[in-house]
Amino acid sequence: MPYLIAVVALVGALCLVDLVLTLGVVRRLREHTKLLDALYEAVDLMGGPAGAGGRMSPGDVAAEFEATTVDGTPLTRELLVDGTVVAFLSPDCSGCHEKLPGFASWAAGQDRSRVLAVIDNRSGDPAEMVTALRAVAQVVVDSAVSDAFGVQAFPTFLQVATGGRLLAVAPDISRLPAGSPA
């Protein structure tokens, strides 16, 4: 019987130590999340420090562009609907492939006319991304759209107003105001 009490006391002590260590890890992860959020605010995702020459920031308007979706629909800056979420992806970007399932899942619950996937065609085969997104988003395979928005880093997610005015920039769909689950 004394051995049983000693074992129970030992297991209880180990559980308590584990709980304390787990709470410490959670606290540290929260600190790191805050630091990463601050980093994203300090450095925009258009390829450089916020306010750097040639980089767009919220309030700026995209340059004129003309493109055609993979379904044959013409697309211009003026045809963008207010609140449209634009995902800029590249076939040779491992981060883009990691975020692709989550973005496709999010887009499936949205109005397709307000979701645009721009796949940069400078490198890699876009077929996999086109297949994954075609049913849930308007898909354009054209680097001219990326250039019009000044995007230099992939993946990048934007929310735009009518006429291509930039409302928000984020590294992940969940960080956009429109990126919350539908």
Rank of each mutant, 00 (worst) to 15 (best):
R28I: 01
T33F: 07
T33V: 10
M56C: 04
M46Y: 13
A63I: 03
A67G: 06
V61M: 12
L29Y: 11
L45N: 08
G54I: 12
G53I: 13
M56E: 06
E31F: 00
G54S: 05
M56Q: 04
F65Q: 09
T33G: 03
T68S: 11
M46L: 15
A63V: 02
R28Y: 03
E66C: 04
L29M: 07
A67E: 01
R55H: 07
D37R: 14
A62G: 03
E41M: 07
G53M: 07
A38S: 08
V25R: 15
E64F: 10
G53K: 10
E41Q: 12
K34P: 00
A67F: 00
D37Y: 13
L35S: 13
Y40D: 06
R30T: 01
V61C: 10
R30Q: 04
A67R: 03
A63C: 05
R30V: 02
R55E: 01
T68E: 15
A52E: 02
A42N: 02
S57V: 12
E31N: 02
E66L: 02
L45I: 10
A50F: 00
H32G: 08
Y40W: 08
L36H: 12
A52F: 01
E64S: 11
V25D: 13
R28D: 03
S57T: 14
L45H: 11
G51W: 08
G47M: 10
L36F: 09
M46I: 15
L23I: 11
L45P: 01
D44G: 03
